[in-house]
């Protein structure tokens, strides 16, 4: 059926928006990547990235983001399961508690973590009462803590949403068919919550790998992540849009590849269902 004029017209603002703010910037990124200061075509920016320094930064970023994602998953999964089996009133309260940190600007959250983790911060003042001290700020560990704290809700919410949709009677049915408590989890809850886990991983991994603020404040510039590096070429002293764009492009491709791998699992499952229909 042909769409009416109004239906088509309603789509235009979105098309204009996409072109202006999504497609055009992407074209600029690609353009800057493959040109030099005079606007001539070059692959120098891409080649420069493969010097050991930048490869190391990439590997560091991926590792920290992966660690943060895994920790988020380990915390979020049991929490989401427990929430989803609570009474409805308690579920709402718990989810509200999870959402509240999201209402705060995460710059403020990160600053708070600085005062907590500093050598003269809250944790160390308490430890000093027992004659102990721990150096935490400006370490990769501090950065991971920051990432986990900021992005944990993005892991809990999608998993909780999927889990709360699992019918209690399916758990009863599996118990009826011989599943102990642990088997109920592995045979029913886990396979059924996979899609939530996948979107949770994506929603934590992507901001973690590209963050620059958390690593600057909690990492203290002792080591650089890819986000910091990109930022430094756009606003820092060594402004170089062309090289910054090249780094962004590679990061983007990296994220797209990891998302494609993740989606492969959910997609193949859905495709199977479609095929059968």
């Amino acid at each position: 059926m042909k769409k009416s004029f109004i239906e088509r017209a309603a789509a235009y603002p979105h098309i204009v928006w996409s072109v202006l703010f999504i497609i055009a910037p992407l074209i600029f990124v690609v353009y800057y990547t493959f040109t030099d200061a005079d606007g001539a075509f070059t692959t120098e920016n891409v080649e420069r990235m493969f010097t050991s320094n930048y490869v190391l930064i990439f590997i560091n970023s991926v590792c920290l983001a992966l660690i943060a994602t895994v920790i988020c998953l380990l915390i979020a999964y049991p929490l989401a399961y427990i929430f989803s089996r609570m009474k409805e009133k308690w579920q709402r309260i718990m989810i509200l508690l999870i959402m509240i940190p999201l209402w705060m600007n995460f710059l403020i959250t990160t600053y708070s973590w600085m005062t907590i983790l500093e050598d003269t911060g809250i944790i160390n003042s308490i430890l000093s009462l027992f004659g102990l001290s721990a150096h935490m700020i400006n370490t990769p560990g501090a950065v991971v803590i920051g990432m986990v704290f900021c992005f944990l809700p993005y892991m809990i919410l999608p998993i909780y949403t999927v889990m709360s949709g699992i019918d209690e009677r399916l758990l009863e049915a599996s118990a009826d068919l011989g599943c102990s408590g642990w088997q109920r989890l592995t045979k029913v809850v886990m396979p059924m919550s996979l899609s939530g886990v996948i979107s949770g991983i994506t929603m934590v991994f992507v901001p973690s790998i590209s963050t620059f603020y958390i690593s600057q404040k909690l990492g203290g510039g002792t080591f650089q992540l890819i986000g910091d590096t990109i930022e430094s070429y756009f606003v820092g002293t060594a402004i170089n849009y062309h090289f910054g764009a090249a780094l962004s492009l590679v990061l983007m491709i990296l994220i797209l590849i990891s998302m494609a791998i993740m989606n492969h699992y959910t997609d193949s499952e859905q495709a199977e269902r479609r095929r059968i229909k």
Binding site: R169, A175, D176, G178, V188, I276
Partner: peptide
């Protein structure tokens, strides 16, 4: 005795089939 240790099986109201399995 929990359900999984009983020699009793159930056909549930509205079936409760596992949607992730064929």
């Amino acid at each position: 005795t929990p359900p999984y240790k009983r020699h009793i099986n159930t056909v549930f109201q509205r079936y409760a089939l596992f949607p992730h399995l064929n």
